[in-house]
Amino acid sequence: MSASTSSTPASGVTGQPAWRRYIGRYMIGMGIWGALFFPMIWAAYSHRLPGAPWIYIVTAAPAFGVAIVVWSMLRYLEEETDEYQRLLNTRAFVVATGMVLVLTTGWGLMQWFAGLPKVSLFNVFLRFLACQGVATGWVRWRAR
C-alpha cells in the first residue's frame, strides 16, 4: 500500500468514488423497488393480480429492489478505501438495523399482547430507510 498522491480531491464523504458508486447503486435499487412496488399495489387494489403461482412472484417482486439496496451497502463497505468513513457508515448501518429491530420487536409484542394496532411488515424497508437517515445524522453529529 503506497502513499497515494491521487489528483482526485477527497474533501469529504461525497467526494469519495466508493460513496458515489454506492449512491448510484442505491438509486438503482430504489428505482427497481418503486417500479415493482407501485404497479403491484395498483394491481392489488384494482383486483388485477394474477392467480397462483404468479401472485407470489408479483407481490414479492419489490423485495428484489430491497436486495439491491442491501447489496449496494455491502459493496460500499468493501470498496470504501477511507477507513474512517467506512467506520462511520458501518456504525450508521448497524444503528439503523438496531433501531428497526428494537422498534419492530417492541411494536410486535405490544401488538400481540397490549392490543396496539397491527402494522404491515411490507413497509419495514421504508422504516429502515427512515432509521438510516436518523442514524447517519446522529453518527455524523457525534463525529463532528
Binding site: M1, A3, S4, A10, S11, T81, E83, Y84, Q85
Partner: peptide, 29 residues
C-alpha cells in the same frame, strides 16, 4: 493532507483530534 493521503478531510481531523486511531497501513502511509 487529506488529498495527499487519499482520505477525507474529516478523517484527517478525526486523527488529529484523537477521535480516531488510524490503522497500521494508514499510519505507515
Amino acid at each position: 493532507l487529506a488529498q495527499r493521503l487519499d482520505v477525507s478531510r474529516q478523517s484527517v481531523n478525526a486523527i488529529e483530534t484523537g477521535k480516531y486511531d488510524p490503522s497500521l497501513p494508514l499510519a505507515f502511509r
